[in-house]
Design a binder for these strands. Structure first.
Lengths: 259, 259
DNA sequence: CGCAAAGTTGAGATAGGTCAACTATTGTGG
DNA sequence: CCACAATAGTTGACCTATCTCAACTTTGCG
């Protein structure tokens, strides 16, 4: 289980350099009192009295450096994970070896669901930036769920939402639509975190975006350039500004940003 | 919307005509004692004592004619559904109106999960053949889940499996791979039902297959023809025979059939 | 400074889509 | 029972979005 520790991650992953940079950028660390679990799982108002119980699920926290694996294909599934800060990507692995990025996970989001079915992780999860995650012991979650029906619902809702999102992603939309929808999705999720939604940094590489959207990196690049040319966005390297959100919405098709 | 209009269903829904043809073909009706819910939700051995409780979830059953809608986009979500016989397709609807077939549901499978998130159905579910489904009152399911932790796990596993499947579907595989994987998936699921896995009828139209696999119907047709030419399968209209399953596996990439 | 990684841009190749004609099957009504 | 119409599927020819390959630029960092 602790294969994870490896330096800073990936197989190729050329030793991440300086460990000095980490001032936990990537945004604020969510206070544990409104740990993702609580915020996400419990619809609307969560009674303060429940918080401690919720926190009972969090068996530990972990700090990840960029490129470090949170879990790997085939590992035993024992926990779900909630992102408190930073960003991760999670993948599924086709047995033919190719890896698809199913989703990027921002603070407040929960990952690991794909593993429930086979009780082993069906893909990898890798930090894209310095990140802090809570471990949610699945056994404990199930135990607590018996006392808190809301929790069951919450879990199912998360699972349902992600299935829905993935389903939509499946759609045969063209490159512009996909990229536009992706930008809006990111923007919306950042807004949900109370961060700037109109101007933000892409935490992931073009290649990751391309993989996620099932496009060639070159295509992503071209589309971004095109959008810039049309003054819909401003992009330079990883920083993005949405200039004409309405038009972007329009390009994306009225596709829902995330749910 | 619903450009899919399968003959006798669709939006206009011309009250099911001839109610004469139905001898409940489409295979056996599963005995309620091993209703999908039990089989699917409860891993491995289900204690006979639990069966009645499980059955407590089944608030009603319903018979559907081909083309009939089980639920429609936007309807309030109150139940999950378990297929006892026949076959259904379930879709998600992009707000731009296009409809994707997320999955086909054979006996023993459960549908409706995508609706949990928004508490309304995010797509349609339509019978492809005469079908019988159980209604699983979601409220009741949640209630029972408190007494039967296994049930929670079961539900999450189903949700997880379908997310996984959809995730894999997302992959950018070419037409041959997709069709091959699709045939194997069907075959495997039929086998799981104890039905013939090497020779079966496609219950869905080429158009539905194409939509599901995100291809043009013509492409599906061409691929099938190609596979026939290469003696990997025999097809004629809707009947399929897997002649060289090994080769088919190989074409599909070692992609897992369903889970 | 200089290399390595990331990103951009261009040109040509191609898988699959689109359009359209054609065939086969099924159901309908005389 | 036989046209006829409607639906489903097949096949071909062409078109286009995207991929691939490759050169080039920029950035980050030792």
């Amino acid at each position: 289980m602790a294969v994870l520790g490896s330096g800073r991650g990936s197989p190729p992953m050329p030793g991440g350099r300086g460990s000095r940079r980490h001032d936990v950028d990537a945004g604020e660390v969510l206070p544990c009192s409104q740990c993702p679990v609580a915020r996400v799982c419990l619809p609307a108002s969560i009674e303060p009295a429940q918080v401690p119980l919720i926190e009972g699920m969090v068996s530990r926290q972990r700090y990840l450096e960029p490129g470090q694996y949170l879990f790997r294909v085939g590992e035993e599934f024992t926990s779900l994970f909630a992102v408190r800060s930073g960003c991760l990507k999670s993948t599924v692995l086709d047995p033919d070896g190719s890896e698809h990025i199913l989703n990027f996970h921002l603070p407040g989001e929960v990952l690991g669901f794909a593993a429930i079915y086979q009780e082993r992780h069906a893909g990898n999860a890798i930090a894209l930036s310095p990140a802090i995650v809570c471990y949610l012991s699945f056994r404990e979650v199930l135990r607590l769920a018996q006392s808190f029906p809301q929790l069951i619902l919450g879990l199912l809702r998360i699972a349902s939402r992600s299935a829905l999102y993935t389903g939509r992603l499946t759609g045969d939309h063209n490159a512009v639509v996909r990229v536009a929808a992706f930008l809006l999705s990111l923007s919306g999720r950042l807004r949900a975190q109370g961060r700037s939604a109109a101007e933000f940094e892409l935490i992931m590489s073009r290649e990751d975006i391309a993989n996620h959207l099932r496009l060639a990196p070159e295509t992503v690049s071209r589309v971004l350039t095109q959008l810039r040319t049309e003054r819909v966005i401003a992009v330079s390297r990883r920083s993005v500004q949405l200039l004409d959100e309405e038009r972007l919405q329009c390009l994306a098709g009225p596709m829902l940003p995330y749910g």
